[in-house]
Design a protein around this nucleic acid. Structure first.
Lengths: 111, 111
DNA sequence: TTACAGTACCTAGACATACTATGTATCAAT
DNA sequence: ATTGATACATAGTATGTCTAGGTACTGTAA
């Protein structure tokens, strides 16, 4: 497995909650924002994003609603829920714990 | 999925290479060392460790050899290979890149 | 002496989840 | 008229960790 694919496992929810927590976003926008904010590192495919959004909506972490553009285009905007905010705080805390544990073992300072 | 299980995905190889790179180790010892060095965070199950070791040995990153203890016990000691050392350096570099990208997006400083 | 906990290895099958590939449709630009 | 970008979606695949189970030896305590 390519390293980005492997490491991203388990992080997608945190990334998506962080982004949607900034402001309501629609799927395609999330892909672009994620790539931009990570300076090109994260490049989600639609096939990765949309199932993740549906899973998170079903879990009550985000909530989506359709909006019709003047052009006739449909966009599904997602905003974060109360439950999602709690989950986001939890995820950030877990991320810190994980960081500490990883650094204790892989000792990048000695590398 | 429990958060540790999720985040650990893609990190196991880095952790194992780091540990075996410190000194040759056998499987059971790796579980104990990993738990100790991470201050209790990482608790690998045998069912997670051994397949990972076999996979990495097949990939030429580590090499294992049996040793017979005076007690009659068998232990399989693994040491890191040249290829494994290169992979370890690569993994450390990738880990740094991933860290930077994650922090750019999840902005724990603002949390 | 037997029962249990610890050491030490292993595999099979289940499960989660990110991947590739593909599909639909609209719009703007060439 | 065709391409590329926008915008959503699903089906099936691949990967890797998990749970659960198995074997076998050692030392200790009841």
């Amino acid at each position: 497995m390519a390293h980005r694919r492997a490491l991203i496992k388990g992080s997608i929810d945190s990334l998506l909650l962080s982004l949607i927590g900034q402001k309501p976003m629609y799927g395609y926008q999330i892909i672009k924002e994620l790539e931009q904010q990570s300076q090109g590192y994260f490049r989600l495919r639609e096939g990765t994003l949309y199932p993740a959004l549906h899973r998170m909506e079903e879990a009550g972490l985000i909530s989506g609603g359709w909006q019709l553009l003047p052009s006739g285009q449909q966009r599904k905007y997602y905003h974060i829920t109360e439950k999602g905010l709690l989950k986001l705080a939890e995820k950030r805390s877990q991320w810190q714990d994980y960081l500490v544990a990883m650094n204790l073992v892989i000792q990048p300072a000695n590398a």
